[in-house]
Design a protein around this nucleic acid. Sequence first.
DNA 1: TGAAAGATTCGCT
DNA 2: GCGAATCTTTCAG
Length: 199
Amino acid sequence: MEIEPELYDLRALEAKEAPSETHALARFLLGKLLVHRSEGGLVGGWIVETEAYPPGDEACHCFRGRTARNAALFLPHGHIYMYRCYGTSLMFNISAEKEGVGAGVLVRALEPALGLDLMRANRGVADVRDLARGPGRLCQALALSLNLNGQRLSRRGRVRLMSGRGDWGAIEASLRIGISKNAGALWRYSFTGNRFVSR
DNA sequence: TGAAAGATTCGCT
DNA sequence: GCGAATCTTTCAG
């Protein structure tokens, strides 16, 4: 699989020593710019909060094997997995391991950066802080839809990742939110003190 | 074939 | 802070 360094630098990922590649990706994504070339225009934001769902994790959607819904999580790292939750909200995930290994990173919050007015229209709220703070909200703000499922992050694709600023400060690990299985793992990563982090 | 649960959000108190 | 909305997937019977 071709990896475009600016979008998705695997060597940088591997240089960070982490418990598994999923965790390395979850931390790597912090501070990167997530951009969607949507129907209405360009929208995007800085990733400030992620959660890791590594192989063998009971809370991961692929814990009980591959199904039609979770198939995208078994694609090589860098593919999009979209999931509808509670009938109302969409979740945006990125597959995190090699082909055939099910794992992913949930992107939980963005600091809005591109197309703020379009994001406001998509969300129906004005306050920047309410645009993309939460996994369902960020999907709505960026107009991410289920048909992105299985697509790869790519410079030519509709969804891409761009390199970040450098001034984000410390990363902290905390409890993942809203799950019941394996709830004690500190696999949620965020920038300490950032006001766009959920909860 | 049916039932339950779910990586949430919003509005109301 | 609490509870309802909402609907698809998955597993059990």
